[in-house]
């Protein structure tokens, strides 16, 4: 599948690109190791909680830049509560679709927006720092896209078990050794979870192999 004209337009002429000086909140998601990283900056009206300005920086491919561009368009002018409802599926629709192997870029862009909003809310006493637990891990797994079909690994029932005890994470994945994406998925899980200080060790098991 090729990129749509909308994707190409946003890639060549992205909206809201750059840095915001003195932002009210910011967040960075992804990592250069995974091939893409996005930073978003928010200016929020303290009374109305409307996102008055939003900008992004992107290290990544065309779809990474295009999805960040469209997400910032969607979020601008919305209240924080409204912006929280923006999904990666919506971003994809607005862009006229993405190749399955590129869906993770849309997830990353939405994820960055949600993190920036969450950072704002925590900083302004609008919510507590969420307790870390098994649910946090499952939420992270929902952001990991199986590149062949462009759906997340939880929805695709590839996650058979998640355990968390005393800093130890155990994840059983239903991916066989002939699956060409298996190593990518495992690497991405580690990349997503490494930001949590609560995690000391991650063990990923597959049906037909030793733990990695």
């Amino acid at each position: 599948m090729q990129y749509s004209q909308i994707v190409l337009d946003h890639f060549m002429h992205p909206h809201n690109v750059g840095k915001l000086e003195n932002p009210d909140a910011e967040a960075t998601e992804g990592s250069p190791a995974c091939g893409d990283q996005v930073t978003m900056f928010l200016k929020v009206n303290p009374e109305t909680k409307v996102i008055e300005d939003i900008k992004f920086l992107s290290y990544g491919c065309a779809s990474n830049i295009a999805t960040a561009s469209i997400i910032t368009d969607l979020a601008k002018g919305k209240t924080l509560d409204e912006a929280k409802k923006i999904t990666w599926q919506q971003a994809m629709e607005e862009l006229g679709g993405l190749p399955p192997v590129k869906v993770h870029c849309a997830v990353l862009a939405v994820d960055t927006l949600q993190s920036a909003i969450s950072n704002y809310e925590i900083a302004h006493g609008l919510k507590e720092v969420p307790n870390f637990g098994k649910d946090t891990i499952i939420e992270e797994l929902r952001k990991i896209i199986y590149p062949k079909v462009g759906e997340d690994i939880v929805t695709l029932k590839m996650v058979k078990y998640v355990g968390f005890n005393d800093g130890e994470v155990i994840i059983d994945l239903n991916l066989m050794n002939f699956d060409q994406w298996r190593d990518n998925i495992a690497e991405e899980i580690r990349e997503h979870l490494k930001k949590y200080a609560e995690i000391k060790n991650i063990q990923i098991n597959f049906p037909d192999s030793q733990a990695t």
């Binding site: 992205p14 690109v17 750059g18 840095k19 960075t28 250069p32 990283q37 996005v38 930073t39 920086l57 992107s58 290290y59 830049i65």
Partner: peptide, 8 residues
């Protein structure tokens, strides 16, 4: 590079 968080 203008768009890149690494460069910035």
């Amino acid at each position: 590079r203008e768009r890149s968080p690494l460069y910035q």
